[in-house]
Amino acid sequence: MNLRKLFRSEAASGYLLLSPTAIFSIVVMAAPLIAVVLFSFMTAGYLKIIWTPTLANYVTLLDQPIYVTLMMRSLIVAAVATAATVFSALPIAYFISFFVPPERKSLWLFLITIPFWTSYLIRVFLWKVILGYNGVINSAFLGLGIIHEPMTFLLYNANAVVITLAHAYAPFAILPIFVSLEKIDRSLLEAGQDLGESRFMTFIRVTLPLAVPGVVASVLIVFIPTVGDYVTPTLVGGNNGQMVANLIENSYFKLGNYPLGSAISVSAMGIVTVICLIFLFLNRRFLRSRS
């Protein structure tokens, strides 16, 4: 009788209902992530894995400059791309939240999400067309007589990666900021102005602090996947724009060294996690005041 009651309780029903999704997530995500961590301590033998735990892979990562260089570059490119994406997204989110009439807001959000759903590969490739030697920008500037020979600094470097990523992740940055702006009680802003603050100072002292949770969310949601992006650095990065995902792919498929590839993946995940935690810690004041 007691068991039956327990089975019918609210918590039990909840667990039971959530279990298919939770079990799927444990089997297909959590367990494989643990496997990668284990793998990173193994050694690649000839056609098989040597099951003796060792730190050799991590020593290799620190020893050979290429790994440190590409990891640093990935972090810097992702940080710059994130800053570019979020700063360009802020005014858009602000515009939609504060200046667009309520009945038109969905339309604007829809307009922003459409490009995001067209093939990522083809979008990235089209940036190659825009930025390339015979590309849209070069031919336009040549035609207008602004430049006399095509600019070569546009494509196949970190700049191209930043522009392409800022384009690809735009909706991920706009939507969280928009949501946090929508939550702001508009009477707070009126109060700020009634108390003698200018419109600009009201923005700085009221709107911005209240929007921080959204900005923090969009920074994280853009930064984390961009560090590990593969398609963009491969297509528009050139030799000096390769990032950590290329390194991982290379050690898995070209070198066939799974433990080394796993060690790169684990290090990348660890470093990104630490950076995100530091970032959250630095913003703790704004995040706490909301909840």
């Binding site: 995500m29 494989p32 992530l33 496997a35 990668v36 994280l220 949601i221 984390i224 996947p225 560090v227 590990g228 992006d229 593969y230 995902a245 991982i248 792919e249 898995y252 590839g261 796993s262 993946s265 990348a268 995940m269």
Partner: peptide, 10 residues
Amino acid sequence: VLPDIIIAVS
């Protein structure tokens, strides 16, 4: 938020 390549590798 997990990079796709990490999911792929694992």
